[in-house]
Design a protein around this nucleic acid. Structure first.
Lengths: 362, 362
DNA sequence: CTGAAAGCGCTTACAG
DNA sequence: CTGAAAGCGCTTACAG
């Protein structure tokens, strides 16, 4: 493996073909101005001698510089989530800075489609060599991406996917499957004939496609033959303030303490801390609770055992891999896989420490 | 961040200091032959202008080539485990080949200390620029590592740790903590007053330190205040053939079917498939079983639900990170953290697909 | 359509 | 102790 290391140089090829290095370079990069005859000849020798370019020399000589753009929601204190992919970008950037790579971040308001379109167009206008795009608003995303396609800007979709679009790759989690994982965990921790609440805490203006496929996956688990039959009940809460949730949950959770150990709750997003708060305020213990994302509030409830499991979307890795996908494609000329699903990490009080810092370091 | 990108060149420093590039290079690399006066002057200017070397140019110019050595057990069909770190090495190597990096792998027989010492010494004799060492035999490892220290060869320990040794870094999993994770999972899935068997399937000649700390961690979980009191029973099996296990388990598992749902079993290593086979052959269902490592046999039992959870040691990542730690230190001159604990991944039938291939791709 | 030359930023002998 | 020059492998104008 390590002997494959590039020993054949352009000058070797040139000599062998009886041409100059410049000409070899021209065929190497398809920049024309070469007669078909010499072209094929050089191509043959390239092949025969198994030429592999020295990327370092190439980057050094062509003082080319690469600019990528990212289009993700602004991280707010209500939703820290999008700060994580951004830190993944930085981590990746740090690793490949010396290749002359830059990243220009563009942000938008998660609840405002107009800002999405405006920021997106602004990003495209800078004519980046590649873009990382969160398709938060499906229709608007579709439009932006087709513009990128026209302008030959490769696009990596991050966090949620849109099918049938001219994208380079998708990096994210399989929402449906993560729902199944949640279901299997609750199933493991509940006796037969338990009662399970599926709680969708929806934001009024944002998209809720993730939540829907998580619920589908969750329900799909119990549709499998041989699974114990629990009672599944969906509760849709519109608005992510505490009082909406309190109102909705207090109606369905009047059960006396003894039944609580036979109850499970699956909150289909990071708002699981609202449910945890509810349980804690009412002194309801031993209900099995599972939700998403390693936000600080959620972690607190995980540590005090109000939440049993959190499923991580690996946001830092999403950022890191999106960036690297672009880099590998644009700079290293590698074709990435079309779908890159990150692992569905199961986080508990006991293993969370090793998921908290980027470098898994202590 | 991206504007920090190196714009100051050696020639800039040289001009400013009124010396030649060669001299700047000499102080940059501490290779002497510079008067103290010019040295401090150059140093000052370096600092002041915030010089950052262009690694690409540096690697290209110094046709230096780096050689690392690895010392890990040979992967056998009985134990595929060590094939994974090796593939992690390859993955890392692939990413940094263009820096002139090579890896010479050295292997030994997991059960034969002599082969460990012999291979280790052979590796050291090649005078590598860094070594990745599995400290399978503690005393012998200690000796090898002190030789490396004398010869200034940085060492990264992989998979299991030895404290108080002159090592660069350790990459692996916190065994104790992984035991706690296992305990919390069983606790979640078992009713109060259940019975839990801790099964140590020990190899006669290899080291079993991992198993011990996993058991300690497991027991530690139940020592915490407020945990339901289950009956914990340790079963030590010497020899990793099926009949030893069959013999040992058939003595303790005569319970009638109804009690089985109140039984959990924690196998402290990858031999959990032996226990799974036992259960399956006897038609014992609904016992809660947890073990380690994503070996093919284990995966089969996970998929047919005989095994409930597997804890992954992330062997590929261990290999990848060990190699990168060496690379970053030797080539990029970065100081790594002393301990690098990888996450303790919880694997179920539902999420395993996304842990199987290196690139989390589908 | 093609070649010769200069240059990317750093390192390496070599001469003094 | 120091500087000038050549070179790493590739790319980029430029001249023809």
């Amino acid at each position: 493996m390590s002997d494959t290391f590039s020993r054949v140089r352009i000058s070797d090829i040139a000599r062998r073909a009886g041409v100059s290095a410049g000409t070899v370079d021209r065929v190497l990069h398809n920049r024309g101005e070469v007669s078909p005859k010499t072209r094929t000849k050089v191509l043959d020798i390239l092949q025969e001698m198994n030429y592999e370019p020295d990327i370092l020399a190439s980057v050094l000589a062509s003082k080319k510089t690469y600019r990528f753009a990212s289009l993700i929601p602004e991280a707010t204190d209500k939703s820290q989530f999008w700060a994580m992919p951004a830190s993944g970008f930085e981590k990746a950037l740090e690793q490949v800075r010396h290749f002359g790579v830059r990243l220009d971040p563009f942000y938008f308001d998660y609840f405002d489609k107009d800002t999405y379109i405006i920021s997106g167009k602004k990003a495209i206008e800078t004519r980046p060599d590649g873009m990382i795009v969160s398709p938060t608003f499906a229709d608007a995303a579709e439009e932006l991406i087709s513009i990128c396609d026209e302008k030959n800007i490769p696009v990596v979709l991050i966090n949620s996917n849109l099918f049938n679009l001219p994208k380079l790759s998708f990096v994210g989690q399989d929402s449906f499957r993560s729902g199944m994982v949640a279901a299997s965990l609750l199933d493991f921790g509940l006796p037969a004939d338990a009662r399970i609440l599926i709680v969708n805490i929806m934001s009024e203006k944002g998209t809720n496609t993730h939540l829907m496929s998580r619920e589908e996956g969750f329900r799909c688990y119990y549709d499998q033959p041989g699974k114990e039959i629990h009672t599944l009940q969906t509760i849709n809460i519109h608005g992510s303030d505490y009082s909406s949730l309190e109102n909705a949950l207090s109606k369905v959770l009047r059960t006396q303490a003894s039944a609580i150990t036979k109850t499970g709750m699956f909150v289909t997003n990071s708002r699981v801390f609202l449910a945890a708060r509810f349980l804690k305020e009412r002194g309801i213990r031993n209900l099995r609770l599972i939700g998403y994302d390693l936000m600080d509030v959620n972690i607190d409830y995980l540590k005090d055992e109000t939440i049993n499991f959190l499923i991580s979307q690996k946001p830092i890795e999403q950022g890191y891999r999106s960036f690297m996908t672009l880099f590998d494609h644009v700079v290293m000329k590698k074709t990435p896989p079309m779908y890159q699903y990150l692992p569905i990490d199961i986080i508990t009080k006991e293993n969370i420490d090793y998921y908290l810092n980027d470098h898994h370091t202590s």
